[in-house]
Design a protein around this nucleic acid. Structure first.
Length: 209
DNA sequence: GGTAAGATCAGC
DNA sequence: CTGATCTTACCT
């Protein structure tokens, strides 16, 4: 029951998910396993324990973000800019909104399958760099929204690392509010980690949320 | 029922 | 720096 470990605040959950392995597919579909090396924490509504104006759940529960309000250890997928799919792992106790966005991973098994999905020209460290690319390489789709990643029968599965990671933290990428909050975490020395680019819509640095 | 905006990526 | 392209949320 590793999901119990994620039944905590999103920052703690983010550190637990760093270094964890993510596996998708198996059987007839190509299986790909990747080690998570970059994540971002997202909180919830203003009246909850982790207010976060940058979170999809900040304005309360909706059809799209319902998984964030559910129990920990479920996959929350959403479509970004009409084209890309991004994947989060829900955390916090049931009824409380929080999740961890998966931003980058090192492909450890199934590189051939991943490259087939991403294109032959893509460099190896870039196969699962960026949340949209990560989902593309692992063939994570909107059909996977809500699946239990700690269920061995799920199409997408997570196995937490034995020892907790010692991550570096910094501001989240691409968010237009609370842009200075250091809720992005990554493991040092990985070329898979995406470069930081502040959202063009974010206010100048130093403006608090 | 219409529309604006978005936790992105690839290609000029 | 821009275009692609679609879902959601929040109006009227």
């Amino acid at each position: 029951m590793s999901s119990r470990a994620l039944s905590t605040d999103p920052v703690t959950a983010a550190r637990l998910l760093l270094g964890a392995t993510l596996t998708s597919g198996g059987g007839t579909t190509g299986e790909v396993t990747a080690r998570i090396v970059e994540v971002e924490a997202y909180g919830g509504p203003p009246d909850g324990p982790w207010p976060d104006p940058a979170s999809h759940s900040h304005r309360g529960r909706s059809t799209r973000n319902a998984v964030m309000f559910g129990s920990a250890g479920r996959l929350y997928t959403y479509r970004s800019h009409g084209i890309h799919i991004c994947a989060n792992i829900s955390c916090g106790p049931g009824g409380t909104a929080a999740a961890v966005l998966l931003r980058a991973a090192v492909i450890e098994r199934g590189i051939g399958v991943a490259r087939q999905r991403r294109g032959a020209l893509v460099a190896e460290p870039a196969l699962a760099r960026g949340p949209g690319n990560l989902c593309s390489a692992l063939a994570i789709t909107m059909d996977h929204n809500g699946v239990d990643v700690f269920d061995a029968a799920s199409p997408v599965r997570v196995r937490l690392a034995d020892s907790p990671a010692d991550p570096i933290c910094g501001p989240r990428v691409g968010v237009s509010v609370a842009a200075d909050r250091p809720w992005r975490f990554w493991l040092a020395g990985h070329p898979e980690v995406s470069a930081y680019r502040r959202s063009p819509r974010a206010p100048l640095p130093g403006v608090s949320d």
